[in-house]
């Protein structure tokens, strides 16, 4: 290996940090938004849904470019000094994951039997009780939404490279490190990083799958 073990650890840890932060933020916004879209009828809903569905396929490089333009010192948010920081990567990845989680939440809630909602309301459930029960009922597809969102951010390289800059010891994550080692011709190191990335994705998805499958519907 070209670099020390400690550096690989730091890169792996940073990858975990930014992908978790981005996924978590996307959940906080995406699940309520998706639920609202699924349960509410209003003019323009179809248009909004089309927007979300398009967003599910947003190319990371386009997101990267957009976030770069905003965060560069010459951009409108330049004074925040966020470009080339882990926070910038989190922002870009949030933009990538949020539509995925929102879109899949909509279909998760929509596929529930509509009578369940009416029955719950009829039984006098409060708003929060209603939401809680719906989310519990839809937990299998909702966890699938989490996994899809997480998969979207851990695998992307274009946005991380552009907004993070692949700065050594600061914003270098597993995907950008793999690109760098490949361009340096260190294929063994690149392969090792790729394996580490796969392992990381497997562990996280394994835990989520465990949560999803453990409590089968009684």
């Amino acid at each position: 290996m070209m670099f020390h073990n400690r550096e690989v650890w730091a890169i792996t840890w940073l990858t975990l940090e930014v992908t978790f932060a981005a996924t978590l933020l996307s959940l906080i916004l995406g699940i309520p938004l998706g639920t609202w879209l699924a349960l509410t009828a209003f003019p323009g809903r179809k248009f909004l849904m089309a927007l979300v569905n398009t967003g599910m396929g947003l190319p990371p490089v386009v997101v990267g470019l957009f976030v770069c333009l905003m965060l560069w010192r010459s951009g409108p948010l330049g004074s925040l000094h966020l470009i080339y920081t882990p926070t910038a990567i989190v922002i870009a990845q949030f933009v990538i994951a949020c539509p995925i989680i929102t879109g899949l939440t909509v279909s998760a809630i929509e596929q529930l039997n509509p009578r369940l909602r009416l029955q719950l309301l009829g039984l006098g459930a409060s708003r929060s009780q209603l939401l809680w029960t719906l989310w519990r009922e839809a937990r299998l597809p909702l966890l699938a939404a989490v996994m899809a969102g997480y998969g979207g951010v851990i695998s992307e390289v274009g946005a991380s490279m552009m907004v993070g800059g692949n700065v050594r010891g600061h914003t270098r994550v597993l995907t950008t490190a793999t690109v760098l080692e490949t361009s340096k011709g260190n294929f063994a190191a690149a392969m090792a990083l790729g394996m580490l990335l796969l392992l990381l994705a497997f562990i996280v998805n394994g835990m989520l799958t465990h949560l999803q499958q453990r409590r089968s519907p009684s």
């Binding site: 978790f20 932060a21 996924t23």
Partner: peptide, 24 residues
């Protein structure tokens, strides 16, 4: 048991996810 592990996982994720926002 499942609930405990779910909470622990959530706490871990929150902990990990918070760091990119500090010390910049």
């Amino acid at each position: 048991h499942v609930r405990n592990s779910a909470w622990m996982l959530t706490a871990f994720i929150m902990f990990v996810a918070c760091r990119p926002w500090v010390c910049q």
